[in-house]
Nucleic acid binder design. Structure first.
Ligand code: MN
Ligand code: MN
Ligand code: MN
Ligand code: MN
Lengths: 220, 220
DNA sequence: ACAAATATTTAGTTTTGTCTAAATTTATTT
DNA sequence: AAATAAATTTAGACAAAACTAAATATTTGT
């Protein structure tokens, strides 16, 4: 697989959203900032290689082979993102570009060793799941902290209330997007809860909990 | 710079051996496993970009711009090699291929952070010097341990006597190629010396010292 | 000094991945 | 059910990086 082929496969995977959806030529072209005619050319090549199912004018979908290829690239991308944030101290929102390059490095041994070195992480710095070597992974969903049961663990990925007051509160309490949050206990009376944020324990009100989004793995 | 241009620049740099030498088309073609005609094509392009000085039939040499470009690639290559050995636990002789890929990743921030993370190493796992960000570095030389003054530090890179007996001795005493060795003290009487091998102290005879090669940085 | 050998460049193709413009198919309106 | 609009494919071209075969320059041996 060439670098360019890998990028197409990955784009088709992401546009499919986990489903076996049929993706249009124009959707791929838009996403990749290229022309529809270039997409058609590449699709034909990928079809030859049995990476996609293609019917003229009807769009493409990944074959099982294509899906596994996509997952291996996603796995590499997300492991490198973990490396950049955990080991090299990059901020969570500046790792994507570099990971786009690193994901194309070819060496199974490298990825195995990187995975081990990082402690076999299940999610990347954005809370997205990291597929296993054989292409298995749990989907992740974005939910308000207030909607999740005790014991849930995930990554802070957004806010509902983007008022200055709320953002200042988060800042003062050292809660940043990209932080890992675990729900330790909830008080039924007022909905307040005790949480672990980056391994530090603190207590938050229901009002906070219902304005903070967490990316968590779905349980099977 | 494309990946291919970078590989040519790097090859010309290595063939020049630090000198301002004129490198022949065929030498580059041999080294890169390509055809002389392909080399000529690429040389013309690099000459357009002021990376090399080129006179038809007379060979090429790097310009200052080309030399700095080469050094930045060499820096990346060697830093990644340190990462692979020190952090990911690769053996010193299995890192080159992967580093050949990693050296082309484009991100100044990445290399700065990697350098810091690795503790600003001066040499790679093969004892070769790592150029600084602005292209400065000490040359390294390969010498027998017995030829070096007390205080010298370097990487074990080869043996003079490759008899089974000597290799077995090294193995039994846990001395491997790639290990870091420092000369602590020498006994004038018999030439025996006390050394630090991977931070472990031991004593070796002159016979051992005169059969083990060390790669050390030249002092300025 | 000159012929033979070797090195290097030129000319013409090929493959990959992209593009524009034109043709064709599919979807949407009236 | 046309007519029109939008999406998609085809045809032809181009740039990058490689190749083969042929032409030209340089070096070497006598
Ligand atoms: Mn990313
Ligand atoms: Mn991510
Ligand atoms: Mn190397
Ligand atoms: Mn090296």
């Amino acid at each position: 697989m060439t670098l360019s082929e890998e990028d197409y496969i990955k784009t088709i995977y992401h546009l499919s959203g986990g489903q076996e959806a049929s993706i249009s030529t124009n959707a791929i072209a838009d996403q990749m900032d290229t022309k529809p005619s270039s997409v058609t050319d590449m699709i034909k090549k990928l079809s030859e290689k049995n990476m996609v199912n293609y019917r003229k004018y009807k769009g493409v979908s990944l074959t099982e082979k294509g899906r596994l290829t996509a997952l291996s690239i996603v796995r590499k991308h997300r492991l490198w993102e973990v490396f950049l944030v955990d080991k090299l101290d990059f901020a969570w929102d500046e790792v994507h570009e570099v990971a786009e390059q690193l994901e194309h490095i070819k060496s199974d041994k490298l990825i195995d060793k990187l995975d081990t070195y990082l402690g076999n992480p299940r999610v990347d710095p954005h809370g997205d799941p990291i597929p296993s070597k054989d292409g298995e992974f749990k989907k992740s969903v974005k939910k308000l902290v207030s909607e999740l049961p005790v014991g849930s663990e995930g990554v802070c990925v957004g806010v509902n209330d983007s008022s200055v007051a709320f953002l200042k509160f988060l800042d003062k309490n050292q809660i940043s997007l990209g932080d890992t949050l675990k729900i330790v206990e909830r008080e039924d009376f007022d909905g307040s809860m005790s949480i672990l944020i980056n391994k530090r324990e603190m207590r938050i009100s229901d009002q906070i909990a219902s304005n903070l989004y967490l990316e968590v793995l779905e349980k099977n």
